[in-house]
Simulated assay, not measured.
Amino acid sequence: MKGRLIYLIGPSGSGKDSLLDAVRETAAEHGCRVARRVITRSAEARGEAAESISADEFARREAQGDFAMSWYANGLSYGIPRQVDDWLAAGDDVLVNGSRGYLPEARRRYPHLLAVLLSVDDAVLRHRLHARGRESAEEIEARLARNAGFADTLLAGENDDLCHLDNSGSLSETCQRLLRLIEEHRPHPLPDSA
């Protein structure tokens, strides 16, 4: 494939959805498409601008090979449409909202992917999670503890190619840093041998 998969991961509340929505148009100007996930939740559910379908429809589409990647987490099924492979083959980079748990499989399938861990200061994340109102205070603290442990594991050992992107500041700053990071890690073509 000529393009590169940019695999964005991060804890709930870190701002992945907001970042993807904010960077979509500018990323396209830089030759990077933002994929829209398919999720088994109601269309009324708050969150990312994903395609919401039933569990039965998801299973049917998965069985007929409609997804380049798919996984199950948090009681939901997630899929990345196989169209991303066409974009990659055409030379576009593709930015996806990935799953931390699916990262090893994504790396196997796309060996040259750029994994980007979006993080946010605990105090900022705690505030965002409380503002969302989806979890109790105890659940939020448990999530923060899990997130810290998982991030430590990801940043250690076999993940030397994992890029870290802090989203504790303004969204516009994070968008600019993400675009710079993608540019900095874009593979350069080998010179033609004469």
Rank of each mutant, 00 (worst) to 15 (best):
D56C: 02
V34D: 01
Q176S: 15
S170K: 14
W87L: 12
R4L: 03
W71G: 01
R41L: 11
A151S: 12
I9W: 10
L179T: 02
P81M: 04
L125R: 12
S119G: 14
G15M: 04
E158I: 03
A73D: 14
L118I: 10
G157C: 05
F67A: 00
D17K: 02
S54W: 08
A137M: 13
D161I: 07
L165Y: 10
S172Y: 10
I6R: 06
P104C: 05
E51P: 03
G91I: 06
M69N: 04
E183K: 12
T174D: 02
K16C: 02
A63F: 08
A63T: 07
R41H: 09
D56L: 08
P189R: 13
H130K: 13
R107Y: 07
E158D: 13
V34L: 00
A151G: 11
S14T: 13
A73V: 10
A151E: 15
R61W: 13
A106Y: 06
A137Q: 06
S172E: 15
E184Y: 03
D121H: 15
S14W: 06
S170D: 15
G98L: 06
L190H: 14
L171T: 04
V116G: 02
C175W: 04
N167M: 04
A59Q: 08
S172M: 14
P191M: 09
A28M: 15
R41D: 02
D56F: 01
C32Q: 00
V116C: 07
E48L: 08
S119C: 11
A22H: 04
H130E: 09
W87M: 09
E51F: 01
E51S: 03
E105G: 00
S99P: 00
R33T: 01
R24W: 08
R132K: 13
S42D: 12
S119A: 10
P11T: 15
S119H: 15
E135L: 07
L181A: 11
D161M: 07
L129A: 03
R126P: 02
V38M: 02
S12A: 07
V94G: 00
L114K: 02
E29Y: 07
I182W: 00
S136P: 12
D66Q: 08
R186V: 02
A131Y: 01
E135M: 05
G13P: 00
E105F: 11
A131D: 11
A49C: 10
A55D: 10
R134V: 03
Y72R: 15
N159H: 15
R36P: 00
R134L: 11
K16H: 05
G157N: 14
A63Q: 13
E184F: 01
L5T: 05
A49F: 01
R143Y: 06
G157R: 03
G15D: 06
W87R: 04
R128L: 12
S77M: 06
E139L: 11
R126N: 12
D152G: 09
D152P: 00
S193L: 14
L8P: 10
A45Q: 14
A27E: 01
G149Q: 13
Q176R: 15
S12N: 05
